[in-house]
Amino acid sequence: MASRARTPEGADLDVVPIMSLIMHLIPMLLLSVRFTYLAQLPSGRVVPSVPAPSGDALAEQEAKVVSVRITAQGFTVGGLGGDHQIPCTAALCAPDTYDYASLTAAMVEAKRQHPTETRVVVAPGRDTPYEVVIAVMGATRSRGKGAFKEVLFPNALLADDGVAP
């Protein structure tokens, strides 16, 4: 019978293999980690067309639909008793020159006029960058933060492209 070797008292554990394993795991995990939190904006079906916020049927339509058109000149908000133009803060509209703060203020007014409505139709132009669409959805969704957060129109419906000029 083979005699069992006695472990000397107070001997350290051989942690070198564990260290080696962990040293391999850490770079692998570092490669796959992204230190950003992803969130989501829910959206409904793409609506085929949006009632124009101007024209003969305006009075009838605007009582029902709150809409935001994104154009090369800025935003056109429908549902406030007429066309409400919000131009860009610079001569040339770019993702960072659209006036999102004024859009949120217009949405607050729209919410006052349509307190039970939760939907807003967002109608971007064909070449509108996706970044602007998301920023508009964010601006129409709520105002403020934390305890001061005011929910405006959380359900955004995206319109077909080409509705806005």
Partner: peptide, 28 residues
């Protein structure tokens, strides 16, 4: 974020036709 809306619109229209009725637009 730089993709023009016309591509997104056509893709979502196609997804809607294929039976997807709800979209989750992922953002940071």
């Amino acid at each position: 974020k730089s993709v023009p809306y016309t591509v997104v619109s056509d893709a979502l229209h196609t997804a809607g036709s294929a039976g997807f009725g709800r979209f989750q637009l992922v953002v940071i």
